[in-house]
């Protein structure tokens, strides 16, 4: 019976070597070990210089996304046993600059996220004295799916458009825009249209669907983007045909 498995890690240590290289590690094949457990073993027992991000170890924080045998995956929720007899190739998420080893630079994503204003923009300012913003279960259901995104960025790695077009807002940012667009407490749709209708917005999506396949939380960014295209096309024609004031309302 197999006692160990080979983990092949794509390393990048810019201060030592300007180009990435692969390094093999032999780790114990423990029952129910995730790929993240194997990386932790490497760091603790074999090579303390290995750099990777992780936090919750339970598929909630979205920090430990990496390419596992070429597919974007949360390494805490991906088990060694799925890849027997090995080896397992671990690389940083595709389509992102790499800072070191498996640690990617998420600054560009954070910048894009800000563009879509992912916060409640109420029609009128309310004070605490005005009481709660009440919602019916149906109103909650209209956007709840899109709240489940954990910003793990697997969808950005899976999306070929992200790889081709660095201006594309990307699946998670557009799904998050829709999370607020469909919220009954929100009135910021017009402001988000300005970004989503523009170059790099939702219409850059070519409907490949890999984002929804990669999403570990079943947010279905493809669906969110397609729903936006229908809404956005209506808004486009309104802005084109109606007098300026009327279309903006």
């Amino acid at each position: 019976m197999q006692k160990t498995i080979t983990i092949q890690v794509k390393r990048y240590i810019p201060e030592k070597q300007p180009t990435p290289f692969y390094q093999d590690y032999e780790v114990p094949l423990e029952t129910k070990w995730g790929v993240l457990d194997a990386l932790t073993y490497i760091k603790d027992e074999l090579d303390g210089t290995l750099a990777f991000r992780w936090s919750c170890h339970m598929g909630v924080c979205g920090s430990c996304g990496m390419m596992v045998n070429g597919q974007p995956a949360l390494t805490c929720a991906t088990f060694l046993e799925e890849y027997l007899p090995g080896p397992i190739c671990i690389e940083p998420l595709d389509h992102f600059p790499v800072i070191r080893d498996l640690v990617i630079d998420t600054d560009a994503f954070m910048g894009k996220l800000k563009y879509v204003k992912p916060w409640l923009i109420p029609a009128e300012e309310r004070s605490v004295d005005d009481g709660e913003n009440r919602q019916t279960p149906a109103e909650l259901a209209a956007f709840k799916q899109y709240t489940l995104c954990i910003n793990c960025l697997l969808c950005y790695s899976a999306c070929p458009v992200v790889g081709l077009n660095e201006d594309f807002l990307g699946p998670a940012a557009i799904a998050l825009a829709q999370r607020y667009n469909y919220d009954s407490r929100d009135a910021g749709q017009t402001q988000r249209h300005d970004v989503l209708l523009d170059h790099g917005g939702a219409f850059d999506c070519t409907l490949i669907g890999e984002c929804s396949r990669a999403c570990p939380k079943h947010v279905d960014p493809t669906g969110a983007i397609q729903r936006y295209k229908a809404d956005g096309a209506m808004e486009f024609w309104k802005r084109l045909l109606l007098p300026r004031g009327a279309a903006k309302r």
């Binding site: 201006d167 209708l197 523009d198 170059h199 850059d204 295209k229 096309a233 486009f236």
Partner: peptide, 10 residues
């Protein structure tokens, strides 16, 4: 983001 109108919605 570009200044020109995006015609893709059209």
């Amino acid at each position: 983001m570009s200044k020109s109108r995006n015609n893709d919605p059209f």
